[in-house]
């Protein structure tokens, strides 16, 4: 069966991607796994972590492994939308005519690293909205399609809160995951030091191309999921809304809940996760495993949770325990 080969190729490709990424990224296994899931699922990822934990390195390495054109946008408060999307410029042709030509911005890549996205103004941030959602850009009335696969990996720096513009909920909702890059352990720091003493450049090599990723995406979308699991995902998402009175955890700790995009993200990414783990169907455990990265940026906890020293992740864990299968 053709699909059997595809599934085998899928598994091999994922293994290769992971092994190559480990050449450049020390530790952060969960981050790597989830980033791969997000890419295959066709979603964008928001990375949060202190400077120097390897956010940029991960994306750059990923671009190399996936053979995808990579661009990095360093967001600053003075960054204009046109700096992201590109703009039309008047050029003089060799024969002396003045013509307008479009100069694409750094967004025109397959893999985009939007560094410190919360430093840009809301206007610039909103320029990313259309790109992330539709994979299209409109400049001066002209629509430009981005090449698939298109993947945005944005970073947020939690430390420098001065001069930052928190991302609006609508934009946050467009990220399929929010991943927290933890400070590496002592051993990992040692490994980082030893690795970077040799070279600072990424050493990972390309293992797949854009077409393979698209094939993997198509294959993952065919993974069957039973209604009970879909209903479970739906209950989990609706359970984040305190006003719906479906969950004691939500009533107690959540200010506002996640949108239906969270349920879409859960199922899409669960399919990929199942296939990565060698299964051909989505299970409850896939939903449970992805609940935190999918929901952590889509819900807001209230002062009661803060008072009780509960983090968003803690509240989501409580919610998962409370939701019946």
């Amino acid at each position: 069966m053709e699909n059997i080969e595809k599934v085998q190729q899928f598994s091999e490709a994922v293994k290769k991607i992971k092994s190559e990424l480990r050449k450049d990224v020390v530790g952060q296994n969960e981050i790597v796994d989830n980033v791969i899931i997000a890419i295959i699922a066709g979603g964008n990822v928001l990375l949060e972590g202190i400077p120097g934990v390897g956010k940029t390195r991960l994306v750059r390495s990923l671009g190399k492994v996936l053979s995808l054109p990579f661009s990095r946008i360093q967001f600053t408060p003075d960054l204009m939308p046109s700096d992201v999307t590109g703009t039309n410029v008047i050029e003089k042709t060799p024969d002396g005519k003045m013509v307008s030509s479009f100069r694409p911005g750094p967004i025109f890549a397959n893999l985009v690293l939007a560094d410190e996205i919360n430093r840009a103004t809301p206007k610039t941030q909103s320029a990313m909205l259309e790109v992330m959602q539709e994979h299209k850009i409109t400049v001066a009335g002209q629509r430009y399609e981005l090449k698939e696969p298109f993947f945005v990996l944005a970073t947020e720096n939690p430390i420098e809160q001065d001069g930052t513009y928190p991302l609006p909920e609508a934009q946050m909702d467009r990220f399929v995951f929010k991943l927290l890059m933890q400070f590496p352990s002592d051993k990992e720091i040692v490994d980082i030091v030893n690795m970077t003493q040799i070279t600072m450049d990424e050493t990972a090599e390309a293992v797949i191309d854009d077409q393979a990723i698209l094939d993997m995406r198509r294959l993952a979308s065919t993974v069957p999921v039973i209604d009970e699991v879909v209903n479970y995902a739906a209950r989990l998402v609706s359970g984040t809304h305190p006003e719906l009175n479906k969950s004691e955890t939500a009533k107690k700790y959540i200010k506002y809940g996640a949108s239906p995009r969270a349920a879409q993200a859960l199922i899409s990414c669960a399919k990929v996760r199942a296939l990565i783990n060698g299964r051909y169907n989505v299970a409850y455990e896939d939903i449970d495993a992805l609940a935190i990265p999918v929901l952590r940026h889509r819900i807001k906890i209230n002062y009661t949770a803060v008072n009780e020293k509960l983090s968003v992740d803690n509240v989501i864990s409580l919610l998962v325990k409370e939701t019946k299968r």
Binding site: T222, V223, E228, V229, N281, V282, A283
Partner: peptide
């Protein structure tokens, strides 16, 4: 891992992935 339940739910469906599952 809900394998049997998926198999039961998809017993009347066709498709490569379904058959593989």
């Amino acid at each position: 891992k809900e394998e049997a339940q998926t198999m039961l739910a998809c017993k009347d469906k066709s498709g490569d992935m379904v058959e593989l599952q």
